[in-house]
Structure formats: structure tokens, C-alpha cells
Nucleic acid binder design. Sequence first.
DNA 1: CTGAAATGTATGATATATTTAACATTGAGT
DNA 2: ACTCAATGTTAAATATATCATACATTTCAG
Lengths: 74, 74
Amino acid sequence: MSAQYKITNTIKTLRFFANEMTQQELASKVGVTRQTIMAIEKGKYSPSLEVAFKIALVFGRPFDEVFAYEKITD
Amino acid sequence: MSAQYKITNTIKTLRFFANEMTQQELASKVGVTRQTIMAIEKGKYSPSLEVAFKIALVFGRPFDEVFAYEKITD
DNA sequence: CTGAAATGTATGATATATTTAACATTGAGT
DNA sequence: ACTCAATGTTAAATATATCATACATTTCAG
């Protein structure tokens, strides 16, 4: 069948390098709840484009340094 | 108040340069309905990150060439 | 070790994206 | 002008993201 992809992110790493920002702090800055950050970090579901952009903005990093769409099979 | 942003995209232009691909063709390749492409092109709502990635993939363009998060006020 | 803070997990409610279907409008070709 | 394909619009139903709350587990400073 056609190639399979998954969305990955580097949020946990970025939090660590951002002075060990907590999930709660990130959630507050982004304007969502801690559970939303949790779910995204864990890959439970893919965020809305809006939330994804806001997360990249909070870390001040280019979008593709935070989120990627990676091929997992062919 | 805090800065306002809006999500913009270049889908219509990219369709034009992709041999004038129709909304229906794009929708089929992405795996959504034509109305979804319509709504996204028109900015009626912001797509899921998954659909956004798929659209960029169909056009074979870097993500940030398709979608942008632009400041509209300060 | 103990306790508080951070992270993880689960569930039901709400908001939003997407589908489905139907119809209206536009635009280009004949 | 006619016609057909493409685009645009609307409304109701469904799927998924997000919220709100509650509780369990990990982690680490004291």
C-alpha cells in the first residue's frame, strides 16, 4: 500500500533546553491545557496547525525544527 | 492585547503551478473531500497538522512554503 | 526517607475539523 | 447563448482535538 507517515515532535527536548520549562508553563504560554501538551508530546493525536504554530513560536524555533512528518514504511 | 496571528497558505497558487490541479484532484491525493480543501484555501478554519503535512507532500514543497503563521497586529 | 512538584493516565464534556449531500455561481470553450 | 466542469456555499452528521477534573506515578530536593 501507499507509504505510511507519522508526525513527530521535539517538544520534550525543546522544553529541556528552554531552562527546563514544565509542561504546565508551556501549556500556559501556548494557551492550551497541560493535558494537550502531554497528548501531543506522547503522540496520542496530532495537534491543530494553530496549536503547532504557537508551540514553535513559544520556543522561537522554525516550525520544522519542532514538527516533522516522517515516513515509517513504503 | 497580545499579538494576533493568522494562518495563511499558498494552496491556490500551488495548484495553479501544478498544472492547474483542481480542488477535487488535490483532495483525492490528500485523502480528504473537496469541501475540506475549499475551507482551508478560504481560511474558514485551520486544518489538522496531519492534513497540512499531506498537502505540502502532494505539492512536493517544504512545509513553510505552503503554510505560514503571520502576525496581523501587535 | 518524605513530601511536594512534575509527569502520566483515564474519562466524560465541549469545541472544532471533516464528511456528506445538495444546490448555486462562475468561467472557459464551442 | 449554452453547456459542462470547476468553484463556492450551506446545513446536518460524524470524527477528532481540546478541556476539565480527578487520581496515580515518578522524581528529586531537603
